[in-house]
Amino acid sequence: MGRRPGHDFTRSRSGYVFLTPWFVGVAGLVLVPLAFSLYLSFTDYNLLGSPEWVGLDNYRQLFGDDDRYLHSMRLTLGYVVVAVPLQLAAALAAALLLSPSRRGQGVYRALFYLPSLLGASVAVSITWRALFDYGGGVNSFLATFGIEERSWVNNPSTVLWVIVALEIWRFGAPMVIFIAGLQQIPAEVYEAAALDGAGPVTTFTRITIPMLSPIIFFNLVLGVISAFQTFTPAQLVGDGRGGPADSTLFYAVNLYQQAFEYQRMGYASAIAWVMLAVLAVVAGLLFWTSRRWVHYGD
């Protein structure tokens, strides 16, 4: 018995030694920068000088004296509320089509999944911008219906919808998860419903949706978190500075602008920490409502 603790200790010690590179990475690349940015959020730091402690001034300015910040918050919230449900609906629709096993189904699943691998990339965003600009494919297509050519991306009233369209087009990742979820629903439940005379609509709303609700919830939480952090499409489909006329000033774009264009690293850090708090609250709300509509079965 006396040897057991020592034995365990040696075993776990070599385990820890193996963990060292990972631990160094987490500490150096995540924990320390995280703590540093929390510290910076209470300072005035322009990157060239040294940080000056200003207490809560940054946070006070955010909510009291920065219309652009509040604008970016509203814009991002609106985007999340519109884009995420649309993307999930598209993903679910595609999943319903692609879930039954048919010949060549794998090819279609792969094809529909592909955009979500590429969607967040720089290249696709640039292509997307070109598609919706003067001389782009979208204008040529609309011209066949006699619609006059215009720049959808250089116009503050349409550019946001171009970004929403890009987000919807990337429905592949939630779609794959939906397909997996749909295949978990036992066939006998559907058979029983069919015997009771349930039509397709009733089957969908009374069986598919409730049985799938944990998966919907999972996709919703992930979608909301990633939509809040939208940066690449906004930066590249928009003009890269939140424009035209602040119409693509997403939360993360504003953060980047304050940090690197205005060199207000302290202020930008405060913006980042408020985002964390907002995400925590939103996720908490989603979990709270989930008790009412998510059914985990027995």
């Binding site: 322009n46 116009n155 503050p156 500075r241 939140g242 424009g243 035209p244 006329a245 602040d246 205005y262």
Partner: peptide
């Protein structure tokens, strides 16, 4: 010192709001 953004970013932003009639 430190005013570069007035001419580069800020002027452009307000000009665009006028350009688009906002």
């Amino acid at each position: 010192a430190g005013t570069r953004n007035i001419r580069s970013e800020m002027f452009d932003r307000y000009s665009q709001e006028v350009l688009f009639g906002q």
